Amino acid sequence: MQGVVKVNSALNMRSGPGSNYGVIGTLRNNDKVEIIKEVDGAYEIRFNGKVGYASKSYITIVN
C-alpha cells in the first residue's frame, strides 16, 4: 500500500510506533512512502530503504 506525507513542515520517522522512540529520519510534504502495516495509531513504513514508524494522521493512502 502506498501513502503520501501531508505536513506543513516535517514529520519524524521513528524506530517505534510512538513519540517516545528515537528519530531515524525525516519526512517532508509529498514524500511517497510504502505502508507496511498499522500499529497503535501509526504506520510502519518504508522510505529510502529504511523501515520505521510515522503518525498515520499525516499520511494519506493513495492506492
Rank of each mutant, 00 (worst) to 15 (best):
S19P: 15
E44P: 00
Y53R: 01
N12C: 15
S19G: 11
G16V: 04
T60H: 14
N12T: 12
E38K: 03
K50H: 08
G49R: 04
G18C: 08
S15Y: 06
I36Q: 04
R14Q: 06
E44F: 14
G22H: 14
S55Q: 11
V5W: 01
Y43F: 09
Q2C: 15
M13Q: 02
Q2N: 10
T26V: 14
A10P: 13
R46S: 10
E44Y: 14
G3C: 08
K32F: 12
V51Y: 07
G52R: 01
N30Y: 07
I35L: 03
V5L: 03
V51A: 06
T60N: 10
G41H: 08
I61F: 06
Y53W: 14
V4P: 01
S19Q: 12
A54V: 15
E38Y: 05
I45N: 00
S55K: 09
M13G: 01
D31P: 01
G22R: 14
G16Y: 03
S57D: 15
Q2G: 06
D31H: 03
I36S: 03
R28K: 13
V7T: 15
V33E: 00
A10H: 15
T26D: 03
I45H: 00
A42T: 14
Q2K: 11
D40H: 10
I24A: 03
D31A: 07
V7E: 03
G49W: 03
G25D: 12
E38S: 07
V23H: 04
K6R: 13
G52E: 01
T60Y: 14
N48H: 10
A42S: 14
K6C: 14
N48A: 10
A10C: 15
K6Y: 08
G3L: 02
T60S: 11
E38R: 03
R46T: 07
V62N: 07
S55H: 10
N12P: 15
L27D: 00
G3V: 03
Y21G: 09
V7C: 15
G3M: 02
K56H: 03
D40C: 14
F47P: 00
N30G: 15
M1S: 09
R28S: 10
N8T: 13
E44C: 13
E34G: 04
V7F: 06
E44T: 02
K32Q: 11
K6I: 10
S55V: 09
Y21S: 14
N12Q: 14
T26I: 15
S57W: 13
E44V: 11
V23F: 05
N20C: 13
M13C: 06
N20I: 09
K6W: 05
V51N: 06
Y21L: 04
I36D: 01
V39R: 05
S9A: 11
G18R: 05
Y58W: 08
V62D: 09
A54Q: 01
G41W: 12
G18T: 10
E34F: 12
I61G: 03
N63F: 11
Y43Q: 00
Y53G: 00
I24S: 04
G16N: 06
R46P: 01
A42H: 15
V39G: 03
S15M: 08
G25K: 04
T60F: 15
G22E: 15
D40K: 10
A54F: 03
T26G: 03
E44R: 08
Y43I: 02
K37F: 05
A54D: 00
L11R: 07
Y43G: 00
D31R: 02
